[in-house]
Design a protein around this nucleic acid. Sequence first.
DNA 1: AATGAATGAGCGTTCATTCAT
DNA 2: GATGAATGAACGCTCATTCAT
Lengths: 196, 196, 196, 196
Amino acid sequence: MKKNKPKYKQIIDAAVEVIAENGYHSSQVSKIAKKAGVADGTIYLYFKNKEDILVSLFQEKMGQFIEKIEHETNSRQTAEEKLFKLVETHFEQLSADHHLAIVTQLELRQSNKDLRQKINHVLKRYLNVMDMIIDEGVEEGLFRESLDRRLVRQMIFGTLDETVTNWVMKDQRYNIVDQAKEVHSLIVHGLARSGQ
Amino acid sequence: MKKNKPKYKQIIDAAVEVIAENGYHSSQVSKIAKKAGVADGTIYLYFKNKEDILVSLFQEKMGQFIEKIEHETNSRQTAEEKLFKLVETHFEQLSADHHLAIVTQLELRQSNKDLRQKINHVLKRYLNVMDMIIDEGVEEGLFRESLDRRLVRQMIFGTLDETVTNWVMKDQRYNIVDQAKEVHSLIVHGLARSGQ
Amino acid sequence: MKKNKPKYKQIIDAAVEVIAENGYHSSQVSKIAKKAGVADGTIYLYFKNKEDILVSLFQEKMGQFIEKIEHETNSRQTAEEKLFKLVETHFEQLSADHHLAIVTQLELRQSNKDLRQKINHVLKRYLNVMDMIIDEGVEEGLFRESLDRRLVRQMIFGTLDETVTNWVMKDQRYNIVDQAKEVHSLIVHGLARSGQ
Amino acid sequence: MKKNKPKYKQIIDAAVEVIAENGYHSSQVSKIAKKAGVADGTIYLYFKNKEDILVSLFQEKMGQFIEKIEHETNSRQTAEEKLFKLVETHFEQLSADHHLAIVTQLELRQSNKDLRQKINHVLKRYLNVMDMIIDEGVEEGLFRESLDRRLVRQMIFGTLDETVTNWVMKDQRYNIVDQAKEVHSLIVHGLARSGQ
DNA sequence: AATGAATGAGCGTTCATTCAT
DNA sequence: GATGAATGAACGCTCATTCAT
């Protein structure tokens, strides 16, 4: 299993750094190899081609990302708490790894449609977590029964993604974790005054 | 003013078509020139470089897009109605121009950070429209006073953008305008049961 | 018609020189471009890819080669004279262009099967010339009726080709045209004493 | 002596198979090693480099090839019979080993000038066999005295080689041994009617 | 002797941009 | 203004060979 060999992770971490620092289009394979401390050809012992580095990077990092969110939400009782924890953990994790934030929010979006579809595939698991929380919320009588699951997912993901992207484009100059409460509130209650 | 000469618009329209049909990375300047019926060199009499075509395209098309939304929202009375009209008009316009939807939601995202910042600049005007509606809503007593304007804008834009992108990636197979009401409701009331 | 533009021939002639001097495997496109006095990219305005340069080179040069042989043999009366003229003209032409001799006898043979089949296609015309001379010889009562046309062609071509290749591999140090008479004699009479 | 160790022959046989099946340019050292059932590095315990595999392959196989021809021609009395046996045995041996025929007639020709000169060196022994037969034929009064030995060798070898190459390129679809008689006749008597 | 992971030099091709006409 | 032929920089990937084990 190549994924357990040290060079596999070494190359992926180098790729994150190189892409964050140079931008997607200036991240040549040779640059990644150099940063990883291996020869160019070594890359191809662990990855099929350049795109495979990026897909693997996303799978590896987002896999951990989603697992952490699954774990944190599971440790909460109500759907509302779970949803808050989802928002907070989402922000916390990207806050904790500035390079990864740049790569996932800005650079990897420049990839072609093909790669983006593979990325979406990885995200399905995240959307499932959201679905389960929504279902729980409905069962608890907290959320409306009539909700269109897909639209809700898109609202939640779209809001989180846009929030993080803006924060990254503002060079991560403010603390995004501080906004978890307000974002959670917007998602749960919308703009309206309570009781409206 | 070059923007008023016929070839200027001719080239921009050709660019939209070529990019929608071939994808961002297969849209060479020579292909755009051919579709526009001009010589490659002529492009450079109207645009500084390739990126300038894309920025101009976005300015031109999004300018009209936002004007239409400004006009439609102005003709409504309450903030709630205005917000609904904003959502609906946003969806309607992209529904009406399939090529443009593909280009703005998928292809132009593959451009580099630099271009994306210019795109964001164009979108500022759209965000202003949202800001004004939010202010009105607060004044009307409809929306909470404590709302963080930036977060609200990000929530609204993120939700609309994610909704449209998903629709485009699903090959525009369902009617997105039909979802305006539900999306509007999610933005105004969130997930919670009314009264919660 | 690209074949009539000066750069087309310029590039082909450069290719012959470069290949003769550096060998097939050390003849990079950039080297050919430099020798031709054009930019690398210009090559691709006239040729589909590197292999297309080589195929075109062969077609161009062997086309002239065969035409000359057709012309020379046509100006003779008997099959025996025609055959002699074929041998002599074959030798003369390769003698007259040392670079071309190296390229056709040694370097182009290193190409892959695909290219070699295209080369064989060009040579069909040469084989037709031989066929006609053989037919004439039979009609004249000079050659045996029972000859297997294909074998005869292979004997003639194989003999000429091997003779020239040996001469090229010996660095063209002797005069191969001088051997036309003896080669012709071997083809017509074989090894046997007259009357045997 | 490495040549007597089992892995030496094992690797050479693997090389013949791999080259015949994949073509010269798709026959990587690693593929040959795999087919031979040894590690890549092991190849270099038995051969100096890749070219050395090919040269050794040719020496090994052509050595046997020529020995067989020497043996068969020695068992005949007259030069004419010996020459016939040479042609027939040449054809028979390549007929009997389809892989070897492909490798020697097509694939090994794609090697560079350097390798081809080493190949020619191996063939010298074959040319010597021809020389001796020619000399005998002259002494017997069967062949002309005035024959240029080198030209005759080239005629014989060129004819045989071209004949076999054509047969291989036609995917060995007909029986080439059947043509030995006619080819022998062409070599001995040429195209001319007997008595001309 | 045998292994196989690691190395790194080498090259065909594309395409945005220029500029002489 | 309009043309389009010409430019040339830039890069992912392969594979023969090495060498620590």
